[in-house]
Design a protein around this nucleic acid. Structure first.
Lengths: 178, 178
DNA sequence: ATGATATTTGAACGATCGTTACACTCTGGA
DNA sequence: TCCAGAGTGTAACGATCGTTCAAATATCAT
């Protein structure tokens, strides 16, 4: 159910995700929706954000933090991200929220997601031998590049552009020069 | 007037930009709005997109194409972009549209904007000595990085992060290795 | 089988959506 | 001075918004 909800918010944004559209997509009537999410639409969006955050914690952030082979883990991150965002065919819900005034409503969730992503990646890079400042710079650049790649791939309707970008970003993240 | 309209669409997205909010921001009544934009909201958004596109053509794309000193022009592009987007305090309307289903409505305008930006920047880079493939790769990376920097700066509510990103992107765009 | 609880249905609420229509004021040329 | 057209203000339209609610149904331990 949450994945279906997420799809509606991803496609239409917070304001565009109407209860009607949510009903159409999920099949749940209004009563059921408000039974599971007494807080209404804001509650639904918060649940979706939490689910997305949980997925990234489990499949992206924690592996980066716990990795024995940091470079391997970083490579796997790019693979997982490419699959998750379907080469730009799927939007990052958190990034999309960040660009509208939904950010004001979910500021903590949005900020925390990216802060923890950058931190986890920077930790892995330090583990791979990068200096503190270099690790943070590379991590910021990589996360920001992924978000930008989604924007450009969607704008140009060109998934190959997304994959090219992932290749370049991965390359310069793993092979850095101080 | 168009700049005020643009602000509403930037803050709230296409769906969230209601006629009431547009009235509040611009001061124009419904009658006036539909007098200037007979096509209604879609007409307004199209006009705003055209104005944004025109601004970038004049201040970003054309200088890149016409530059005698390509490296200087590229440096000026980053300065202009940092000012225009107010270090991430202001959203890229085209990028924001790309992430919602407004893209389906304005696909040509959205796609054209980024395609011409990348082309103009790649032309300047070729003019500065880069190979064809290197120029396109660097141009894609730079434009995508700018979009990503907006997302991250807004998410973290951290304009310094935007400016750090601009520094790094500019550096690796101007000093490349084949 | 019974009763308590969980879930669902669908009508309805007031508010707001985008849009239209019409009367009104303003403006500049004849 | 007058008129045509540009621009404005406002009421109202049907549609849809997010939300509420009471009644109906499903589920399940006892």
């Amino acid at each position: 159910m949450i994945p279906l909800l997420a799809e509606v918010f991803r496609e239409h944004g917070y304001e565009g995700a109407t209860i009607s559209r949510i009903h159409d997509k999920t099949g749940f009537g209004r009563g059921s929706l408000y039974h599971f999410f007494p807080g209404g639409k804001e509650d639904m969006a918060a649940a979706v954000l939490a689910e997305v955050d949980g997925w990234f914690e489990q499949h992206i952030f924690e592996p980066l933090r716990q990795a024995d082979d940091a470079e391997l883990a970083i490579g796997q991150m790019f693979d997982a991200v490419t699959t998750y965002f379907r080469s730009g065919g799927r939007v990052c819900l958190v990034g999309a929220f960040a660009l509208t005034d939904a950010r004001n409503r979910f500021g903590a969730a949005v900020g925390g997601y990216f802060a923890r992503w950058i931190e986890a990646l920077a930790l892995a890079l330090r583990h791979a031998g990068a200096s503190d400042s270099m690790a943070v710079a590379l991590a910021e650049d990589a996360v920001l590049g992924i978000q930008g790649a989604i924007v450009i791939a969607r704008s140009l309707d060109d998934r190959a552009a997304f994959e090219r970008a992932m290749q370049r970003i991965q390359a310069r993240t793993l092979v850095w020069k101080e």
